[in-house]
Amino acid sequence: MVDTIVFLVAAVICLTGALGVILARNPVHSALMLVMTLFGIAVQFVSQEAHFLAAVQVIVYAGAIVVLFLFVIMLLGVDTAQNLEIGALPAQKWAALCFGVGSLALTGYIILAVDNPVTGRPGMGGAIDETANVRLLARSLFSNYVYAFELTSLLLVIAVIGAVVLARKPVKQLPEEAGR
C-alpha cells in the first residue's frame, strides 16, 4: 500500500521532470527538471531499500554532474531561450522522431512481451540486511566486476587528461595575437 503510493508519487515526479527537460525552452530550467527526475529515481531506490544507491544518485548525479551542466550553460552564456529553427541540422528533427518512436515501440514491446516481470533474484544494490548495503555493493564491484570497474576508472582518467591537454593554452601564438 505505502510502496504503491511512494512508487506512484516518485513516478509522477520522474516523468514530469523528464518531460520538463525536453519541453522547457530555457536550458537552465531543463537542467533543473533533470535534477527533479534524478530525485524521483533516488526515491525509487530508497523504496527498493537501496539506500546507498539513492545517496550516491543525489551526491554524484544531482550534486556534481548537473552542477557541471549548469556551469557550462552559464559560462557559455546560452542560458536564454533560443529559436530552435535557426542553425538546426535539417535531418535532425526526423532522426529524433524516428528514434523516439522506435524506443517507445521497444519499451511497449517489452512491457507486452514479458508476462512476469518478477525474476525472483535478489537485487544487487538493495540488500536484505540494511547495514550490509555498502558491503554487498563493494563485494560485487571489487570481485566479479573488478575489470569493468578498473577499465571505467581508466577511461575517466583518459578523459580528464584529454580535457586538460585540450584546455591548455597553445604554447606558440601567432605574431598578431602575441601583442595582446
Binding site: A55, V56, V58, I59, A62, G63, V67
Partner: peptide, 11 residues
C-alpha cells in the same frame, strides 16, 4: 552520506 548529499544540493 546525507550530509554530503545535502551539501551538494546546497550548491
Amino acid at each position: 552520506l546525507l550530509l554530503l548529499a545535502m551539501s551538494s544540493i546546497a550548491v
